[in-house]
């Protein structure tokens, strides 16, 4: 059975790229949210197996969105995918409870490996 993926990113480029890398894999994209607020609203109804979360978005940033999702869903699997790659960001993401961090631009191997690692833990 495919694992359900919720993409949270305002960039159509990233949405397209993730669709490409996850095609013909065990991961199925079930929804794309344009910002953190949408993701928080939809998380309960979509109930994804994994969320890919950008950081820089209109409204609340991805770290805050991840924090709020994890507060109400502590078992949520959140994979941060961002161009912001400095140590403070990664540290904060881990402290919030994100399960992984990928830098943009990404390739298929990086994304699948990161996702597989989350489910193998």
């Amino acid at each position: 059975m495919s694992k359900k993926v919720m993409i949270v990113d305002d960039s159509r480029v990233v949405q397209f790229q993730l669709q490409q890398v996850l095609s013909n894999s065990e991961y199925e994209i079930v929804t794309c949210c344009q910002n953190g607020e949408e993701a928080i609203e939809q998380y309960n109804s979509v109930n994804p197996d994994i969320v890919t979360m950008d950081i820089l978005m209109p409204g609340i940033d991805g770290l805050e969105a991840a924090r709020q999702i994890l507060q109400s869903h502590p078992d949520a699997n959140i994979l941060m995918i961002s161009s912001l790659a400095y140590d403070d960001t990664i540290t904060e993401a881990k402290q919030i409870g994100a399960k992984g961090f990928i830098y943009k631009p990404f390739n298929r191997e990086q994304v699948l490996k990161s996702m597989n690692n989350i489910f193998s833990e």
Partner: peptide
Amino acid sequence: EDASIEYLNVICGRLVNKVFS
């Protein structure tokens, strides 16, 4: 427009990591 914005977005992320850190 979307591709150009994402292009600069990635450049900025790398710049922040390298220079400002």
